[in-house]
Simulated assay, not measured.
Amino acid sequence: MPRTPRLPVPPNDDPAQLLARWGADIDPELLELALTHRSYAYEAGGIPHNERLEFLGDAVLSIVVADRLFRDHPDLPESDLSRMRAATVSQEPLAMVARSIGLGDFIRLGRGEGLTGGRDKDSILSDTVEALIGATYLSHGLEAARSVVLRRLARLLDHAVERGQTQDWKTILVEYAHAQGLEEPVYAVEGEGPDHERVFTARVSFGEGEPAGRATETSKKHAENMAARDAMKRLDPQWLPS
Rank of each mutant, 00 (worst) to 15 (best):
R3P: 05
N12Y: 04
D13F: 11
D13E: 15
D14H: 14
P15G: 06
R21M: 10
R21K: 14
R21D: 11
L30R: 09
L33V: 04
A34N: 12
Y40N: 08
E43C: 15
I47E: 04
P48M: 09
N50W: 02
R52C: 08
E54S: 10
D58W: 12
D58R: 14
V60A: 02
S62W: 06
I63E: 14
V65Q: 10
D67M: 07
R68S: 07
E78D: 12
S79C: 01
D80T: 00
M84W: 10
T88I: 09
E92L: 00
R108Y: 14
R108I: 11
L109K: 10
R111T: 15
R111K: 15
T116L: 06
D120E: 14
S123A: 07
I124Y: 02
S126G: 08
Y137C: 08
S139K: 07
S139M: 01
R146V: 04
L150S: 10
L150Q: 04
R152H: 08
L153C: 02
Q165A: 06
Q167A: 08
W169A: 04
W169E: 03
K170D: 02
T171E: 11
L173G: 00
E175D: 15
Y176L: 04
A177G: 03
A177F: 07
A177D: 01
A177I: 01
H178L: 08
E184Q: 07
A188G: 12
E190Q: 14
G193I: 06
E197F: 14
T201R: 13
V204E: 13
S205Q: 12
A215W: 05
E217T: 05
T218K: 13
M226G: 09
A227T: 08
R229E: 07
D230Q: 13
A231W: 08
D236A: 13
Q238I: 01
Q238G: 12
